[in-house]
Computed example of a mutant assay.
Amino acid sequence: MTDRTIQLPRQSAEPALVDPFGRHVTYLRVSVTDRCDLRCVYCMSEDMEFLPKRELLTLEELDRVCSVFVGRGVRKLRITGGEPLVRRDVMQLFRSLSRHLETGALHELTLTTNGTLLERYAADLAACGVRRVNVSIDSLDPKRFREITRRGDLAQVMRGIDAAQRAGLKVKLNAVALKGVNEDEIVPMIEWAHRRSMDLTMIEVMPLGDIEPGRLDQFLPLSLVRERLASHFTLTDLPERTGGPARYMRVEETGGKIGFITPLTHNFCEGCNRVRLTCTGQLYLCLGQEDSADLRSPMRMSEGNERLEAAITEAISRKPRGHDFVIERAAPAVVRHMSVTGG
């Protein structure tokens, strides 16, 4: 992005974004790249073919479309990927979007990251008004971590977490539950995370995109995880919601929280308030559905935002009630990988 002053978006004359089921869309997850420096076994193939860079929205276009959503009532922006911090000059986007925090139009600007580049960027993120980050980490064993990610260095991620906490960022951990892989680590991970004042959210494997290992072989239902945890800890259900799909419990012995994201064993769609924008400008109305809207074309057809606004309005009018993930299907529920849609 250039250093020229970017005008604040006008307060849209269009109404707030409300889907056919009366849910207000106030949360936008924005993928800035499909690229990643890891190749996690549940997320993507080892030999991924990434999009040509010319197909990606520019940083200016990402800022523009995010600003239109903020003008329509979106109050939370989460920057995702792939791995968002591998996008060249991505901090320019954070700096530009931070103006909406300063005006109060945006309540939260955050990101999900694998942590490999956090050591470099944590202080800059904090300076842009980012107050918390989600770090994906599926094992505390260096060898196992490398096997899951196919190339990751656990020590590098740990340095990133250290840097984030030094910068004053609140860190929440995400871990995918993998049958026969990391299920023996869940209790130690909870204890480690809570000692460092980090909450941990467990996530079920989602059937997105073809990968080499079968997802049925990977799938560990969180209902079983919760049952096992109850033999180690005293768990108390919490009523709080963060605008995401997680349901939370307090671990009384540690005082920390554990979340469960259960798209397969317990549908989380009833309160869905979010949509996802890909790095190519496709707006996905549901993580588990193929239906999408092209926002790149109307944005590039004119300097004004009227066509973009209309495309967004039309898309939200067909947001589905929920997904239809079924892990037992031979084919994935949707053909795109998670890295394409954004985590």
Results as ranks from 00 to 15, higher is better:
Asp217Ala: 12
Arg215Glu: 03
Gln218Val: 04
Gly214Leu: 10
Leu224Gly: 05
Ser223Leu: 06
Ser231Thr: 15
Leu238Tyr: 03
Gln218Tyr: 13
Phe219Leu: 02
Glu212Asp: 12
Gly209Lys: 02
Ala230Cys: 14
Phe233Asp: 08
Leu208Thr: 05
Ser223Pro: 00
His232Met: 01
His232Phe: 13
Leu216Pro: 00
Leu238Ile: 02
Phe219Ala: 01
Thr236Ser: 05
Pro207Lys: 05
Val225Met: 04
Arg226Tyr: 14
Phe233Glu: 09
Pro213Val: 14
His232Gly: 02
Leu208Asp: 00
Asp237Met: 08
Leu216Asn: 05
Gly209Trp: 01
Phe233Val: 10
Ala230Gly: 14
Asp210Arg: 15
Pro239Val: 11
Asp237Pro: 12
Leu216Ala: 07
Pro213Gln: 13
Glu240Met: 10
Pro239Gln: 10
Leu220Phe: 11
Ser223Lys: 04
Arg228Pro: 01
Pro221His: 08
Val225Leu: 14
Ile211Glu: 06
Gly214Lys: 13
Ile211Trp: 04
Ile211Gln: 07
Leu238His: 00
Thr236Met: 10
Gly214Ala: 13
Leu238Ala: 09
Glu212Tyr: 03
Val225Arg: 01
Leu216Arg: 11
Leu224Met: 13
Leu208Glu: 00
Ser231Trp: 06
Leu238Arg: 10
Leu220Ala: 07
Gly214His: 13
Gln218Pro: 04
His232Thr: 10
Val225Pro: 00
Leu222Val: 07
Asp217Glu: 13
Pro221Arg: 05
Ile211Tyr: 10
Pro239Tyr: 06
Glu212Phe: 01
Gly209Ala: 04
Arg228Gly: 11
Glu227His: 12
Gly209Arg: 00
Phe219Gln: 03
Ser223Met: 03
Pro207Val: 04
Ser231Arg: 15
Pro221Ala: 11
Pro213Ser: 14
Phe233Met: 09
Glu212Leu: 07
Leu216Ile: 04
Phe219Lys: 02
Phe219Asp: 01
Pro213Arg: 14
Asp210Ala: 15
Gly209Glu: 03
Gly209Pro: 04
Glu212Gln: 14
Phe233Pro: 13
Ser223Ala: 08
Gly214Asn: 14
Thr234Cys: 04
Arg215Met: 09
Arg226His: 15
Arg226Cys: 05
Arg226Asp: 14
Asp217Tyr: 01
Arg228Met: 09
Arg226Ala: 10
Arg226Trp: 14
Thr236Asn: 06
Arg228Asp: 12
Gln218Ser: 13
Ala230Leu: 12
Leu229Asn: 11
Leu220Tyr: 13
Leu229Gly: 09
Arg215Thr: 08
Asp210Ser: 15
Phe233Ser: 10
Leu222Gly: 05
Leu208Ala: 02
Leu224Phe: 03
Asp210Thr: 15
Ala230Glu: 15
Asp237Ile: 01
Leu224Gln: 13
Thr236Cys: 06
Asp237Ala: 14
Leu222His: 08
Ile211Met: 11
Leu208Ile: 08
Glu240Asn: 03
Gln218Lys: 07
Asp217Pro: 00
Gln218Asn: 11
Leu222Cys: 07
Gly209Asn: 01
Pro207Met: 02
Pro213Trp: 13
Phe233Cys: 10
Asp217Phe: 00
Pro207Gly: 07
Pro221Trp: 05
